[in-house]
Design a protein around this nucleic acid. Structure first.
Lengths: 224, 224
DNA sequence: GCCTGTGAACCTTTTCACAGCA
DNA sequence: TGCTGTGAAAAGGTTCACAGGC
Protein backbone atom coordinates (compact mmCIF):
# COMPACT_ATOMS: atom_id res chain seq x y z
CA UNK A 1 0.00 0.00 0.00
CA UNK A 2 0.98 3.63 -0.22
CA UNK A 3 4.25 4.83 1.29
CA UNK A 4 1.89 7.53 2.23
CA UNK A 5 2.37 8.53 5.86
CA UNK A 6 0.03 11.31 6.94
CA UNK A 7 -0.77 13.59 4.07
CA UNK A 8 -2.59 16.86 4.13
CA UNK A 9 -5.90 16.51 2.35
CA UNK A 10 -6.38 19.19 -0.34
CA UNK A 11 -9.35 21.52 0.03
CA UNK A 12 -10.81 20.47 -3.29
CA UNK A 13 -10.81 16.90 -2.05
CA UNK A 14 -12.41 17.78 1.27
CA UNK A 15 -15.20 19.50 -0.59
CA UNK A 16 -15.90 16.29 -2.49
CA UNK A 17 -15.86 13.89 0.46
CA UNK A 18 -19.52 14.65 1.24
CA UNK A 19 -20.39 13.55 -2.30
CA UNK A 20 -18.62 10.25 -1.87
CA UNK A 21 -20.25 9.85 1.50
CA UNK A 22 -23.68 10.24 -0.03
CA UNK A 23 -22.83 7.97 -2.94
CA UNK A 24 -21.68 5.29 -0.52
CA UNK A 25 -24.91 5.58 1.44
CA UNK A 26 -26.70 4.91 -1.85
CA UNK A 27 -24.53 1.81 -2.28
CA UNK A 28 -25.40 0.43 1.13
CA UNK A 29 -29.07 0.93 0.35
CA UNK A 30 -28.59 -1.10 -2.79
CA UNK A 31 -26.67 -3.72 -0.80
CA UNK A 32 -23.57 -3.43 -2.95
CA UNK A 33 -20.61 -4.91 -1.10
CA UNK A 34 -17.99 -3.13 -3.21
CA UNK A 35 -17.76 -0.23 -5.66
CA UNK A 36 -15.21 0.60 -8.33
CA UNK A 37 -13.94 4.11 -8.83
CA UNK A 38 -15.98 4.21 -12.02
CA UNK A 39 -19.23 3.42 -10.27
CA UNK A 40 -18.49 5.81 -7.44
CA UNK A 41 -17.63 8.50 -9.98
CA UNK A 42 -20.96 8.06 -11.68
CA UNK A 43 -22.89 8.18 -8.41
CA UNK A 44 -21.03 11.22 -7.17
CA UNK A 45 -21.07 13.06 -10.49
CA UNK A 46 -17.30 13.38 -10.89
CA UNK A 47 -14.74 11.44 -12.93
CA UNK A 48 -12.98 8.25 -11.93
CA UNK A 49 -9.45 9.65 -11.88
CA UNK A 50 -10.57 12.24 -9.37
CA UNK A 51 -12.20 9.62 -7.20
CA UNK A 52 -9.04 7.53 -7.06
CA UNK A 53 -6.81 10.50 -6.43
CA UNK A 54 -9.10 11.85 -3.72
CA UNK A 55 -9.41 8.51 -1.96
CA UNK A 56 -5.67 7.98 -2.13
CA UNK A 57 -5.23 10.99 0.15
CA UNK A 58 -7.16 9.16 2.82
CA UNK A 59 -5.13 5.98 2.51
CA UNK A 60 -5.03 2.86 0.37
CA UNK A 61 -8.47 1.57 1.04
CA UNK A 62 -9.17 -0.16 -2.26
CA UNK A 63 -8.33 -3.57 -3.62
CA UNK A 64 -6.80 -3.75 -7.10
CA UNK A 65 -8.95 -5.67 -9.51
CA UNK A 66 -11.93 -5.37 -7.18
CA UNK A 67 -12.72 -1.88 -5.97
CA UNK A 68 -13.53 -0.42 -2.58
CA UNK A 69 -15.37 -2.16 0.24
CA UNK A 70 -18.46 -0.02 0.71
CA UNK A 71 -18.84 -0.37 4.47
CA UNK A 72 -15.19 0.11 5.18
CA UNK A 73 -14.81 3.15 2.94
CA UNK A 74 -17.99 4.65 4.34
CA UNK A 75 -16.63 4.24 7.81
CA UNK A 76 -13.32 5.87 6.93
CA UNK A 77 -14.94 8.83 5.19
CA UNK A 78 -17.36 9.30 8.07
CA UNK A 79 -14.44 9.40 10.42
CA UNK A 80 -12.54 11.93 8.31
CA UNK A 81 -15.60 14.15 8.08
CA UNK A 82 -16.27 13.92 11.78
CA UNK A 83 -19.66 12.33 11.23
CA UNK A 84 -19.09 9.86 14.03
CA UNK A 85 -19.64 12.65 16.46
CA UNK A 86 -22.29 15.16 17.28
CA UNK A 87 -22.25 18.77 16.07
CA UNK A 88 -24.98 20.75 17.82
CA UNK A 89 -26.19 23.66 15.67
CA UNK A 90 -27.81 26.98 16.47
CA UNK A 91 -29.95 28.75 13.88
CA UNK A 92 -30.14 32.52 14.12
CA UNK A 93 -32.97 34.32 12.34
CA UNK A 94 -36.23 32.41 12.26
CA UNK A 95 -37.93 33.88 9.21
CA UNK A 96 -39.08 31.82 6.28
CA UNK A 97 -35.65 30.43 5.59
CA UNK A 98 -34.65 29.84 9.21
CA UNK A 99 -37.91 28.00 9.84
CA UNK A 100 -37.45 25.92 6.69
CA UNK A 101 -33.97 24.96 7.81
CA UNK A 102 -35.25 24.09 11.27
CA UNK A 103 -37.85 21.81 9.73
CA UNK A 104 -35.40 20.18 7.36
CA UNK A 105 -35.37 16.51 8.31
CA UNK A 106 -32.21 14.63 7.57
CA UNK A 107 -30.46 17.58 9.10
CA UNK A 108 -30.07 15.85 12.40
CA UNK A 109 -29.74 12.73 10.28
CA UNK A 110 -26.00 12.70 10.59
CA UNK A 111 -25.05 14.39 13.80
CA UNK A 112 -26.04 17.95 12.95
CA UNK A 113 -28.71 18.30 15.58
CA UNK A 114 -30.36 21.70 16.01
CA UNK A 115 -30.27 22.71 19.63
CA UNK A 116 -31.57 26.26 19.53
CA UNK A 117 -33.45 28.77 17.42
CA UNK A 118 -32.68 32.40 18.11
CA UNK A 119 -34.30 35.58 16.90
CA UNK A 120 -34.21 39.25 17.69
CA UNK A 121 -37.83 40.11 17.10
CA UNK A 122 -40.17 40.04 20.10
CA UNK A 123 -43.04 38.50 18.19
CA UNK A 124 -40.96 35.51 17.13
CA UNK A 125 -39.81 34.68 20.66
CA UNK A 126 -41.73 31.75 22.09
CA UNK A 127 -43.02 30.49 18.77
CA UNK A 128 -42.48 26.80 18.41
CA UNK A 129 -40.81 25.59 15.23
CA UNK A 130 -39.95 21.95 14.78
CA UNK A 131 -40.33 21.24 18.52
CA UNK A 132 -38.02 24.05 19.53
CA UNK A 133 -39.13 27.30 21.05
CA UNK A 134 -37.60 30.46 19.57
CA UNK A 135 -35.40 32.19 22.11
CA UNK A 136 -34.14 35.79 22.33
CA UNK A 137 -30.82 36.45 20.68
CA UNK A 138 -29.26 37.84 23.83
CA UNK A 139 -29.39 34.40 25.38
CA UNK A 140 -26.92 33.23 22.74
CA UNK A 141 -23.83 33.03 24.92
CA UNK A 142 -25.62 31.00 27.58
CA UNK A 143 -27.34 28.75 25.07
CA UNK A 144 -24.14 28.00 23.17
CA UNK A 145 -22.33 27.19 26.38
CA UNK A 146 -25.02 25.06 28.01
CA UNK A 147 -25.87 23.06 24.91
CA UNK A 148 -22.28 22.86 23.65
CA UNK A 149 -23.23 24.25 20.25
CA UNK A 150 -20.41 24.18 17.74
CA UNK A 151 -21.97 25.42 14.50
CA UNK A 152 -23.86 28.67 13.97
CA UNK A 153 -26.23 29.10 11.05
CA UNK A 154 -27.06 32.64 10.00
CA UNK A 155 -30.46 32.96 8.33
CA UNK A 156 -31.10 36.64 8.99
CA UNK A 157 -31.47 39.48 6.49
CA UNK A 158 -28.17 40.75 5.10
CA UNK A 159 -28.13 43.81 7.32
CA UNK A 160 -27.99 41.77 10.51
CA UNK A 161 -25.46 39.17 9.40
CA UNK A 162 -22.26 40.80 10.63
CA UNK A 163 -23.72 41.61 14.03
CA UNK A 164 -24.91 38.03 14.40
CA UNK A 165 -21.54 36.68 13.29
CA UNK A 166 -19.85 38.81 15.94
CA UNK A 167 -22.19 37.48 18.59
CA UNK A 168 -21.59 33.89 17.50
CA UNK A 169 -17.84 34.36 17.62
CA UNK A 170 -18.07 36.03 21.02
CA UNK A 171 -20.11 33.07 22.23
CA UNK A 172 -17.28 30.75 21.21
CA UNK A 173 -18.59 29.40 17.90
CA UNK A 174 -15.82 28.51 15.46
CA UNK A 175 -17.85 27.28 12.46
CA UNK A 176 -20.44 29.40 10.68
CA UNK A 177 -22.75 28.68 7.78
CA UNK A 178 -23.97 31.96 6.31
CA UNK A 179 -27.18 32.11 4.27
CA UNK A 180 -27.38 35.89 4.35
CA UNK A 181 -26.45 37.78 1.20
CA UNK A 182 -23.58 39.62 2.82
CA UNK A 183 -19.88 39.17 3.33
CA UNK A 184 -19.07 38.60 6.97
CA UNK A 185 -15.71 39.11 8.60
CA UNK A 186 -14.49 36.83 11.36
CA UNK A 187 -11.20 36.14 13.14
CA UNK A 188 -8.86 33.79 11.28
CA UNK A 189 -9.54 30.89 13.59
CA UNK A 190 -13.21 30.80 12.60
CA UNK A 191 -14.49 28.98 9.50
CA UNK A 192 -17.23 30.44 7.36
CA UNK A 193 -18.98 28.79 4.46
CA UNK A 194 -21.65 30.63 2.60
CA UNK A 195 -24.66 29.70 0.59
CA UNK A 196 -26.13 32.41 -1.56
CA UNK A 197 -29.12 32.07 -3.82
CA UNK A 198 -28.56 35.35 -5.65
CA UNK A 199 -24.97 34.44 -6.47
CA UNK A 200 -25.97 31.08 -7.89
CA UNK A 201 -28.73 32.55 -10.03
CA UNK A 202 -26.38 35.18 -11.37
CA UNK A 203 -23.82 32.58 -12.35
CA UNK A 204 -26.52 30.63 -14.20
CA UNK A 205 -27.61 33.81 -15.89
CA UNK A 206 -24.04 34.56 -17.04
CA UNK A 207 -23.73 31.24 -18.82
CA UNK A 208 -27.23 31.12 -20.19
CA UNK A 209 -26.73 34.56 -21.71
CA UNK A 210 -23.82 33.18 -23.71
CA UNK A 211 -25.26 29.82 -24.60
CA UNK A 212 -22.51 28.24 -22.51
CA UNK A 213 -22.81 25.71 -19.76
CA UNK A 214 -21.96 26.29 -16.13
CA UNK A 215 -20.86 23.01 -14.94
CA UNK A 216 -20.45 22.46 -11.30
CA UNK A 217 -22.28 23.56 -8.33
CA UNK A 218 -20.74 24.31 -5.05
CA UNK A 219 -17.33 22.80 -5.18
CA UNK A 220 -17.78 19.86 -7.39
CA UNK A 221 -17.83 19.02 -10.99
CA UNK A 222 -18.58 16.24 -13.34
CA UNK A 223 -16.96 13.99 -15.91
CA UNK A 224 -15.56 14.97 -19.23
CA UNK B 1 -6.09 50.43 -22.05
CA UNK B 2 -5.54 46.75 -22.44
CA UNK B 3 -4.49 45.30 -25.77
CA UNK B 4 -7.14 42.91 -24.62
CA UNK B 5 -9.57 42.10 -27.43
CA UNK B 6 -12.25 39.68 -26.33
CA UNK B 7 -11.00 37.37 -23.62
CA UNK B 8 -12.69 34.37 -22.20
CA UNK B 9 -13.62 35.04 -18.58
CA UNK B 10 -12.31 32.29 -16.26
CA UNK B 11 -14.91 30.39 -14.24
CA UNK B 12 -13.36 31.45 -10.97
CA UNK B 13 -13.81 35.04 -12.01
CA UNK B 14 -17.41 34.53 -13.08
CA UNK B 15 -18.14 33.07 -9.67
CA UNK B 16 -16.84 36.26 -8.05
CA UNK B 17 -18.65 38.76 -10.25
CA UNK B 18 -21.80 38.50 -8.07
CA UNK B 19 -19.66 39.51 -5.08
CA UNK B 20 -18.41 42.60 -6.84
CA UNK B 21 -21.90 43.35 -8.00
CA UNK B 22 -23.18 43.30 -4.44
CA UNK B 23 -20.21 45.31 -3.19
CA UNK B 24 -20.87 47.96 -5.82
CA UNK B 25 -24.52 48.16 -4.81
CA UNK B 26 -23.26 48.90 -1.30
CA UNK B 27 -21.12 51.67 -2.75
CA UNK B 28 -24.02 53.31 -4.55
CA UNK B 29 -26.00 53.23 -1.32
CA UNK B 30 -23.16 55.05 0.38
CA UNK B 31 -23.01 57.50 -2.54
CA UNK B 32 -19.38 56.72 -3.28
CA UNK B 33 -18.55 57.93 -6.80
CA UNK B 34 -15.45 55.73 -7.14
CA UNK B 35 -13.84 52.71 -5.45
CA UNK B 36 -10.30 51.46 -5.43
CA UNK B 37 -9.47 47.80 -5.83
CA UNK B 38 -8.53 47.81 -2.14
CA UNK B 39 -11.93 49.04 -1.03
CA UNK B 40 -13.75 46.73 -3.38
CA UNK B 41 -11.65 43.83 -2.13
CA UNK B 42 -12.61 44.58 1.46
CA UNK B 43 -16.31 44.85 0.61
CA UNK B 44 -16.30 41.67 -1.43
CA UNK B 45 -14.15 39.69 0.98
CA UNK B 46 -11.32 38.90 -1.45
CA UNK B 47 -7.89 40.42 -2.02
CA UNK B 48 -7.06 43.42 -4.15
CA UNK B 49 -4.86 41.59 -6.67
CA UNK B 50 -7.74 39.29 -7.44
CA UNK B 51 -10.13 42.20 -7.89
CA UNK B 52 -7.82 43.88 -10.37
CA UNK B 53 -7.14 40.69 -12.28
CA UNK B 54 -10.81 39.77 -12.39
CA UNK B 55 -11.91 43.20 -13.57
CA UNK B 56 -9.19 43.26 -16.18
CA UNK B 57 -10.90 40.31 -17.89
CA UNK B 58 -13.93 42.51 -18.43
CA UNK B 59 -11.94 45.39 -19.85
CA UNK B 60 -9.94 48.37 -18.62
CA UNK B 61 -12.62 50.10 -16.67
CA UNK B 62 -10.49 51.75 -14.00
CA UNK B 63 -8.52 54.97 -13.88
CA UNK B 64 -4.95 54.83 -12.57
CA UNK B 65 -4.44 56.87 -9.50
CA UNK B 66 -8.19 57.03 -8.92
CA UNK B 67 -10.02 53.70 -8.98
CA UNK B 68 -13.20 52.52 -10.65
CA UNK B 69 -16.27 54.61 -11.35
CA UNK B 70 -18.97 52.90 -9.30
CA UNK B 71 -21.91 53.46 -11.64
CA UNK B 72 -20.00 52.57 -14.74
CA UNK B 73 -18.49 49.40 -13.30
CA UNK B 74 -21.83 48.37 -11.87
CA UNK B 75 -23.38 48.78 -15.27
CA UNK B 76 -20.68 46.71 -16.96
CA UNK B 77 -20.88 43.90 -14.44
CA UNK B 78 -24.68 43.87 -14.63
CA UNK B 79 -24.41 43.54 -18.35
CA UNK B 80 -21.89 40.69 -18.13
CA UNK B 81 -24.07 38.86 -15.63
CA UNK B 82 -27.19 39.36 -17.70
CA UNK B 83 -28.88 41.35 -14.94
CA UNK B 84 -30.22 43.86 -17.40
CA UNK B 85 -32.71 41.29 -18.53
CA UNK B 86 -35.42 39.20 -17.01
CA UNK B 87 -34.97 35.54 -16.01
CA UNK B 88 -38.33 34.03 -15.13
CA UNK B 89 -37.95 31.18 -12.63
CA UNK B 90 -40.05 28.14 -11.82
CA UNK B 91 -39.82 26.52 -8.40
CA UNK B 92 -40.60 22.81 -8.22
CA UNK B 93 -41.41 21.28 -4.84
CA UNK B 94 -43.32 23.59 -2.54
CA UNK B 95 -42.43 22.17 0.87
CA UNK B 96 -40.82 24.20 3.61
CA UNK B 97 -37.83 25.11 1.51
CA UNK B 98 -39.73 25.76 -1.72
CA UNK B 99 -42.14 28.02 0.11
CA UNK B 100 -39.29 29.85 1.83
CA UNK B 101 -37.64 30.42 -1.53
CA UNK B 102 -40.91 31.64 -3.00
CA UNK B 103 -41.25 34.13 -0.18
CA UNK B 104 -37.68 35.32 -0.44
CA UNK B 105 -37.89 39.02 -1.29
CA UNK B 106 -34.98 40.41 -3.20
CA UNK B 107 -35.29 37.37 -5.34
CA UNK B 108 -37.21 39.20 -7.97
CA UNK B 109 -35.04 42.15 -6.93
CA UNK B 110 -32.75 41.74 -9.86
CA UNK B 111 -34.64 40.13 -12.64
CA UNK B 112 -35.14 36.67 -11.16
CA UNK B 113 -38.92 36.80 -11.01
CA UNK B 114 -40.76 33.67 -9.92
CA UNK B 115 -43.48 32.86 -12.41
CA UNK B 116 -44.71 29.49 -11.20
CA UNK B 117 -44.76 27.12 -8.25
CA UNK B 118 -45.20 23.46 -9.10
CA UNK B 119 -45.80 20.45 -6.92
CA UNK B 120 -46.78 16.85 -7.34
CA UNK B 121 -48.90 16.42 -4.27
CA UNK B 122 -52.65 16.94 -4.61
CA UNK B 123 -53.01 18.71 -1.29
CA UNK B 124 -50.46 21.36 -2.24
CA UNK B 125 -52.14 22.25 -5.53
CA UNK B 126 -54.12 25.46 -5.28
CA UNK B 127 -52.40 26.68 -2.14
CA UNK B 128 -51.32 30.27 -2.48
CA UNK B 129 -47.73 31.08 -1.59
CA UNK B 130 -46.36 34.54 -2.10
CA UNK B 131 -49.26 35.49 -4.40
CA UNK B 132 -48.80 32.48 -6.63
CA UNK B 133 -51.05 29.48 -6.70
CA UNK B 134 -49.33 26.08 -6.63
CA UNK B 135 -49.92 24.23 -9.89
CA UNK B 136 -49.67 20.55 -10.76
CA UNK B 137 -46.30 19.38 -11.99
CA UNK B 138 -47.72 17.98 -15.19
CA UNK B 139 -48.51 21.49 -16.36
CA UNK B 140 -44.78 22.20 -16.42
CA UNK B 141 -44.26 22.12 -20.17
CA UNK B 142 -47.16 24.50 -20.78
CA UNK B 143 -46.20 26.80 -17.93
CA UNK B 144 -42.58 27.05 -19.02
CA UNK B 145 -43.60 27.80 -22.57
CA UNK B 146 -46.33 30.33 -21.82
CA UNK B 147 -44.38 32.25 -19.19
CA UNK B 148 -41.02 31.94 -20.96
CA UNK B 149 -39.37 30.48 -17.87
CA UNK B 150 -35.63 30.09 -18.21
CA UNK B 151 -34.47 28.86 -14.81
CA UNK B 152 -35.78 25.84 -12.89
CA UNK B 153 -35.29 25.57 -9.14
CA UNK B 154 -35.53 22.10 -7.63
CA UNK B 155 -36.65 22.12 -4.00
CA UNK B 156 -38.00 18.57 -3.78
CA UNK B 157 -36.78 15.67 -1.66
CA UNK B 158 -33.69 13.93 -3.06
CA UNK B 159 -35.67 11.02 -4.45
CA UNK B 160 -37.66 13.19 -6.83
CA UNK B 161 -34.81 15.39 -8.04
CA UNK B 162 -33.75 13.45 -11.13
CA UNK B 163 -37.30 13.02 -12.34
CA UNK B 164 -37.95 16.73 -11.92
CA UNK B 165 -34.70 17.58 -13.69
CA UNK B 166 -35.75 15.41 -16.61
CA UNK B 167 -39.09 17.18 -16.78
CA UNK B 168 -37.45 20.60 -16.67
CA UNK B 169 -35.08 19.67 -19.46
CA UNK B 170 -37.93 18.23 -21.52
CA UNK B 171 -39.81 21.48 -21.01
CA UNK B 172 -36.88 23.38 -22.50
CA UNK B 173 -35.18 24.70 -19.36
CA UNK B 174 -31.42 25.10 -19.77
CA UNK B 175 -30.44 26.39 -16.30
CA UNK B 176 -31.16 24.51 -13.09
CA UNK B 177 -30.51 25.35 -9.47
CA UNK B 178 -30.68 22.18 -7.40
CA UNK B 179 -31.38 22.33 -3.67
CA UNK B 180 -32.03 18.60 -3.37
CA UNK B 181 -29.33 16.45 -1.79
CA UNK B 182 -28.81 14.37 -4.89
CA UNK B 183 -26.64 14.37 -7.95
CA UNK B 184 -28.67 15.03 -11.07
CA UNK B 185 -27.64 14.21 -14.60
CA UNK B 186 -28.57 16.46 -17.49
CA UNK B 187 -27.58 16.84 -21.16
CA UNK B 188 -24.36 18.75 -21.70
CA UNK B 189 -26.13 21.86 -22.94
CA UNK B 190 -27.88 22.33 -19.60
CA UNK B 191 -26.26 24.12 -16.65
CA UNK B 192 -26.72 22.90 -13.11
CA UNK B 193 -25.59 24.60 -9.93
CA UNK B 194 -26.24 23.02 -6.60
CA UNK B 195 -26.71 24.21 -3.09
CA UNK B 196 -26.44 21.58 -0.42
CA UNK B 197 -26.77 22.15 3.28
CA UNK B 198 -25.44 18.74 4.31
CA UNK B 199 -22.32 19.16 2.20
CA UNK B 200 -21.54 22.52 3.73
CA UNK B 201 -22.03 21.30 7.27
CA UNK B 202 -19.79 18.32 6.63
CA UNK B 203 -17.03 20.54 5.29
CA UNK B 204 -17.27 22.71 8.42
CA UNK B 205 -17.16 19.59 10.54
CA UNK B 206 -14.00 18.34 8.79
CA UNK B 207 -12.09 21.49 9.59
CA UNK B 208 -13.43 21.99 13.07
CA UNK B 209 -12.43 18.44 13.93
CA UNK B 210 -8.84 19.33 13.11
CA UNK B 211 -8.73 22.82 14.57
CA UNK B 212 -8.20 24.12 11.05
CA UNK B 213 -10.07 26.80 9.20
CA UNK B 214 -12.25 26.13 6.19
CA UNK B 215 -11.65 27.82 2.92
CA UNK B 216 -12.25 31.55 2.93
CA UNK B 217 -14.06 32.04 -0.32
CA UNK B 218 -17.37 30.69 -1.36
CA UNK B 219 -17.82 29.17 -4.72
CA UNK B 220 -14.91 27.71 -6.50
CA UNK B 221 -15.36 25.31 -9.26
CA UNK B 222 -14.10 24.27 -12.53
CA UNK B 223 -15.09 23.53 -16.05
CA UNK B 224 -15.73 20.71 -18.38
C1' DG C 1 2.11 59.97 -5.12
C1' DC C 2 -1.52 56.91 -6.14
C1' DC C 3 -3.78 53.11 -8.10
C1' DT C 4 -4.65 50.27 -12.25
C1' DG C 5 -3.35 46.64 -15.52
C1' DT C 6 -0.58 42.77 -16.44
C1' DG C 7 3.36 39.68 -17.44
C1' DA C 8 5.72 36.22 -14.80
C1' DA C 9 6.31 33.21 -10.84
C1' DC C 10 4.11 30.25 -7.99
C1' DC C 11 0.80 27.18 -6.23
C1' DT C 12 -3.29 24.08 -6.60
C1' DT C 13 -6.06 20.99 -9.02
C1' DT C 14 -7.07 17.99 -12.73
C1' DT C 15 -6.00 14.67 -16.04
C1' DC C 16 -3.08 11.19 -18.10
C1' DA C 17 -1.09 6.91 -18.37
C1' DC C 18 0.74 3.01 -16.60
C1' DA C 19 3.12 0.09 -13.02
C1' DG C 20 1.68 -3.11 -9.66
C1' DC C 21 -1.15 -6.16 -7.33
C1' DA C 22 -5.43 -9.24 -6.57
C1' DT D 1 -7.69 -9.52 -16.76
C1' DG D 2 -9.41 -5.69 -13.94
C1' DC D 3 -8.99 -1.94 -11.14
C1' DT D 4 -6.27 0.71 -7.76
C1' DG D 5 -2.58 3.95 -6.60
C1' DT D 6 0.46 7.38 -8.12
C1' DG D 7 4.20 9.85 -10.46
C1' DA D 8 4.31 13.20 -14.15
C1' DA D 9 2.29 16.41 -17.33
C1' DA D 10 -1.12 19.80 -18.20
C1' DA D 11 -4.40 23.16 -17.01
C1' DG D 12 -6.16 26.56 -14.14
C1' DG D 13 -5.98 29.94 -10.55
C1' DT D 14 -3.58 33.14 -7.33
C1' DT D 15 -0.12 36.23 -5.95
C1' DC D 16 3.82 39.17 -6.87
C1' DA D 17 5.85 43.12 -8.32
C1' DC D 18 6.26 46.77 -11.13
C1' DA D 19 5.62 49.52 -15.46
C1' DG D 20 2.57 53.03 -16.86
C1' DG D 21 -0.87 56.55 -16.86
C1' DC D 22 -3.52 59.94 -13.92
Amino acid sequence: MGPNGRRRIPEATVARLPLYYRALIDCTEKDLPTVSSDQLAELAGVNAAKVRKDLSYLGSYGTRGVGYDVDYLLHEISRELGLTQDWPCVIVGIGNLGAALANYRGFGARGFRIVALLDESADKIGQVVSDLSVEPIDTMAAVVRERSASIGIIATPAGAAQKVADLLVAAGIRSILNFASAVITVPSNVSVRKVDLATELQILSFYQLRGLTADPALVVDRPA
